Simulated assay, not measured.
Amino acid sequence: MKRTLLILPLAAALAACGNEGDGTSVSIKGDDGNTVASVGKDGRVAIKAPGFEGSLKLPKFEFGADNFEVDGLKLYPGSTIANLNVESGNGKEGSVKVQFDAPAAAAQVQNWFREQMQSAGFTVDLKDGVLAGKTSDGSPFTLKLAPAGDATSRGTLSVTGT
């Protein structure tokens, strides 16, 4: 029940911090690998925890580049987050996976990230078009980028050991 009490304010805070754009979906998984809480792009919050299960509708919200940071690294300016998944790790290391849309071509976004990562103390290698390495605190990461239209791209940043 403690987890439920912590998740309700988190879900409400997430839903309150945005505008009426496309929205962002967020999921939080517990140690057993099951989804404990999720917020859909439509603002529907679903919570499933021992002793409590329910859902409610809150206004849509949208995370942007200013609302997300990993070890001092922000997203490409003007980016919006489409999906954010947090897993506690089921007894192992946890992970964060963020899928975002950037208002620039994939090559430009990749170059920007590489410079920002190196400045933030990350180790960065480019292999098969994917940036990979370790954050400044030693957590492994990957960053995949793909074109998503004229001068836009879709990226997926995954960090484990969080």
Rank of each mutant, 00 (worst) to 15 (best):
G51I: 01
V159M: 06
G21I: 04
S79H: 05
P140D: 05
D128C: 06
T135C: 00
G30S: 07
L143E: 00
A11R: 03
A49E: 08
F52C: 09
P9E: 05
V86M: 13
D66C: 04
A132T: 10
S88C: 12
K97V: 11
V98D: 01
T156H: 06
V98N: 04
D137Q: 15
V130T: 06
S79E: 04
I47Q: 05
K48C: 10
N34H: 14
E87I: 08
S88D: 13
T135K: 01
G94N: 03
L145D: 06
T160N: 14
G161L: 01
L14Q: 14
D150L: 11
G21P: 07
G54W: 01
L10V: 10
K97N: 14
T162Q: 15
A12W: 11
K144Q: 03
D22A: 13
F113Y: 05
S79I: 04
T162R: 15
Q118W: 06
L6N: 11
A104K: 02
G33D: 13
A11S: 07
G138K: 04
I47V: 12
G138P: 04
G94W: 02
T35L: 06
A46S: 14
L143A: 00
V109D: 01
M117G: 04
S88A: 14
Q110D: 07
Q116C: 10
D31F: 10
G91E: 10
A46P: 11
E87W: 15
L14S: 14
P147W: 01
P59N: 00
S25C: 10
V98M: 03
N85Y: 13
L157C: 02
S139N: 12
L10A: 13
P9V: 07
T123N: 08
T142L: 04
F141A: 00
E87N: 14
V36L: 15
F141G: 00
V86D: 15
G161S: 01
A104Q: 02
T160L: 09
C17H: 14
D66G: 07
K74C: 09
L8E: 15
V26E: 13
G64Y: 11
N111C: 12
Y76S: 02
A120R: 05
E87S: 15
T162M: 14
V98I: 04
D125H: 14
M1F: 12
S153C: 03
F52N: 07
V159R: 08
L84D: 07
T162N: 15
A107I: 02
N90P: 15
M1Q: 11
P140H: 01
F52Q: 07
K144S: 02
G149D: 01
L143T: 00
L131M: 04
K48A: 12
A146K: 08
S95K: 15
S136H: 03
V109F: 02
E62I: 05
P147A: 03
P103A: 09
K48T: 08
G155V: 05
N83F: 09
